[in-house]
Design a protein around this nucleic acid. Structure first.
Lengths: 138, 138
DNA sequence: CTTTGTGCAAATTCTTTGCACCAAA
DNA sequence: TTTGGTGCAAAGAATTTGCACAAAG
């Protein structure tokens, strides 16, 4: 399939050696911008890849993280979530439906560290939690 | 001791029924603004409270959370941390020494949600990670 | 061949739960 | 006495590790 070839190329951009499993995981991330958990990724791919193991999904996401191809989100107390969009943006977690929304319209200055070079910043996470507009009206 | 009486009063402000254990935990939090993990709190108190159990520390912090007396921080992939300062401020985690620094000089506007009333915001977390000035020079 | 990736099972870590005992009003 | 708090042991959930087999060059 052409789509998996695209994921293959995408991995190469991050110097990640592609494999069937890695391309499938990246393909899922690129097409489903839902900030999925390991379990969500595994459950989505398992039906079409019966031999896939959850260990491989863990290995794969850790590899993606090391290569900077995904961003780790710790929005709730439970599982880690992964975002294939590594640009500067924030997140909103609805505590009612557990859906994660991207918040793109934050001022760029919010992603700059306020203090004068004292620390070396590697990552910035801006996250909100509450109730989304859909759950609010129910 | 006078200090535990202060913690006792502090708990009452949040409508938390004090106990020896709860006052001791709150006393530790008020005097050690290090955003400790459950384990750090337990290890600090256990020597002077031999019968203290880690379960009680978990119970206590969950109770404090429910009453809004502490703020939950999820800065690293591992343990939860707790901050007795519930005001709007950010945090910096040094990945080298694991120390957490408070970032107080953030603009108040950063803690307001950028979108027009679509979502009900309950909490905002702004966190940075990288290398602190001490580890940088080593 | 040789290197690297995969996947099973087991281990580890963090946190919660069930339940008996203890403490305080 | 009655209510609620504590603490042990066990359970549960998320993630990592060890190792044998498979795949790819």
């Amino acid at each position: 399939m052409e789509t998996l070839i695209e994921s293959h190329q995408y991995l190469l951009q991050y110097a990640i050696k592609p494999s069937v499993q890695r391309s499938a995981v990246m393909d899922f991330l690129l097409k489903n911008r839902i900030h999925p958990t390991i379990d969500e990724i595994y459950s989505a791919l398992a039906p079409s890849m019966p031999t896939l193991s959850k260990t491989t999904v863990y290995n794969t996401l850790n590899l993606f993280l090391e290569h900077g191809a995904v961003q780790l989100l710790r929005l709730d107390e439970k599982n880690a979530r992964y975002d294939v969009d590594t640009s500067a943006h924030g997140h909103f977690l609805c505590k009612s439906c557990n859906k994660v929304y991207d918040i793109f319209n934050l001022k760029p200055s919010m992603f700059q560290f306020p203090q004068n070079l004292q620390f070396d910043i590697e990552s910035v996470e801006i996250s909100y939690a509450g109730t989304c507009h859909i759950c609010k009206s129910n």
